[in-house]
Nucleic acid binder design. Structure first.
Lengths: 339, 339
DNA sequence: ATGAAAGCGCTAACAA
DNA sequence: TTGTTAGCGCTTTCAT
């Protein structure tokens, strides 16, 4: 429509001020008179001016973008609906602040190397790392050593690392789940946990054990924990293990909805009904929970809020603040896999 | 590690040439001697130099980034596993070319406006638009009018629009599905189609009708088409409609795996077995297909290839080539929902 | 409160 | 084949 894109120069000319003044106005700095501000505002509207982010980045030394880094073994993570939920939340939040991002996936070792090099080259101001399925400390260390502001969506295994993190109250969520199962009449509860390693797995296991200890008849609930890798098929396998070892199980706390779907499949194969014979409670409240048959009672993770805090944290760190950890609450969502 | 990031200047100094020569080398241009090239290469390695993309963007007038634009009504699309698959493929492909992208979602009208304004402001070199669930011609027209290079992941409803597109052979895929159902012994085939509007829905319906016409006993197969919106619950509803209208159905071609999952749920509710009573074939080969119980026979969409072509196309258009349409083949994947 | 001027790191004529 | 030069659009001292 306009022959050429408007620059700060055009705005300055039309507003009858210098470029420096426009710049000050743009960046909300002091020393811009009411008059000047009004004129500039009008000029901006008239021209439809939008600052050129590259020119700005060049002079400020800030990229104006961050990386969303995915440590994804076995192509598993893209099948994990949680990932999409978090990505979406982060994208929303970033969009609101006008910072763009690049999505990097890390399938193998060599790719991890390439990614690290890219990030170290200063292409982005910071990184949001998600690695729910496996350990990621190597990448994390590389990032920290390069001095790149970083936040992660779990508790760091090494708490002394200067990275921000946000996660949900895993322990509390697990408690909530197990208590509800008990309220619904389950007497002999088992757990399908995620892969050992990430803090979330550990905390949820503690939540399960502590809760079950308060009302269980026997004392070795630990033997009723099986591990999966968050895939549906691993949930199937875990459920089979659990049942083979202890046929009296009448309730299962599953650490992800996807695994819960797998568990239900195994149960159906064995002719067991959910929730009549065995009650199931999932975790995440991902899209899989509603799709499941029966729809899953589950513990909701507030992905929107997680994304918001992740971005918030990262921006703070980029601005020089100390990284902190943020723990968000979970919420019980009752559907039909419990009585 | 290095006090300051290396610039083209440092590389030039170390290599004993001018910055212009380094620039030429970097951009693979002619007129760089073997000698110079070798020296520059060494200097780059030594310094760990990586070009500053903002400086480059500033001078070339190219953003070096594109937008991945999602027209998503009802928060549906993020529940659609196809979206994640495509996003991933596009991200991979873009990453290989060193172009970053920003992910934009469009939940409502006002957001659509904001997005369009942002894009028109020249923040990106082009856009990849995905709107499988609803019509998106408004946004598309805005993009085209602003002269922004655009590709879409479907056939444009207005074929005269200068946008590139890549999609799968919907008609052929539908034929493949229906023929296979017939081969497996289905005599009375129905279809659950997607929402009316997008070209894919129309073409798959034609594929279904034409194929069924070649072997069906009656002639009003059109009455055995129900529409869903790609959600599992819509598949459930559609399946119920179909069965209520015609209990003799023994095979269903469902236009997405997610809807097929819903359809199976309805079938189970009615005490019908898959594939013994009714055979089901899905579309997409998304993660839902493997998770389903029974695992779904389906028509695979080559998302990786779609992503690659989308990016390819977009880059060509950005470089001034004429947009074209690309149609990719589908593939039958046999699992357990057919006999 | 405002403007002049000096770059940020890079590419692209144009000379040489 | 190579170097010189002039900006790209913006922010930021430093004067005023």
């Amino acid at each position: 429509m306009n022959q050429h894109k408007a620059t700060i120069h055009d705005v300055a000319r039309i507003a009858g001020v210098s470029r420096a003044t426009v710049s000050r106005y743009l960046n909300g700095r002091k020393w811009v008179s009411q008059d000047a501000a009004a004129n500039i505002k009008a000029a901006i509207e008239q021209t439809g001016y939008v600052a050129n982010s590259h020119a700005r980045a060049l002079v400020t030394g800030r990229a104006g973008s961050v990386a969303f880094l995915l440590g994804e073994p076995q192509k598993l993570l893209f099948e994990d609906p949680n990932f999409a939920a978090l990505l979406r939340a982060v994208a929303d939040e970033l969009g609101k602040r006008g910072v763009s991002f690049i999505l990097m996936t890390t399938d193998d070792q060599s790719e991890a190397k390439r990614n690290l090099a890219y990030l170290q080259a200063g292409h982005v101001d910071g990184v949001i790392q998600v690695a729910w399925h496996k350990d990621s400390s190597e990448m994390l260390n590389g990032l920290v050593q390069a001095g790149i502001p970083t936040v992660i969506a779990e508790q760091p295994s090494d708490e002394t690392l200067p990275v921000g993190y946000v996660h949900v109250e895993d322990y509390g969520g697990a408690r909530k789940a197990c208590e509800y199962l008990h309220e619904c009449g389950a007497k002999h509860i088992a757990m399908i946990a995620g892969p050992a390693g990430p803090s979330g797995t550990r905390d949820r296991m503690h939540g399960f054990l502590d809760t079950v200890a308060t009302f269980d008849d026997d004392s070795n609930a630990a033997s009723r924990i099986a591990h999966g890798d968050y895939s549906a098929s691993s949930g199937e396998v875990a459920m089979a293990q659990l049942l083979d070892a202890d046929p009296d199980i009448d309730g299962v706390f599953v650490s992800s909805d996807t695994m819960a779907v797998g568990a239900i499949k195994e149960l159906r194969t064995r002719g067991l009904s959910v929730p009549d014979d065995i009650q199931i409670i999932g975790f995440d409240d991902s899209s899989a929970a509603m799709l499941a048959d029966p729809p899953l009672t589950t513990i909701r993770q507030p992905f929107q809020a997680i994304g918001k805090h992740l971005v918030d944290q990262l921006m703070r760190i980029i601005n020089g603040e100390q990284p902190v950890g943020v723990t968000l609450p979970t919420e019980l969502v009752v559907r039909d896999s419990t009585r």
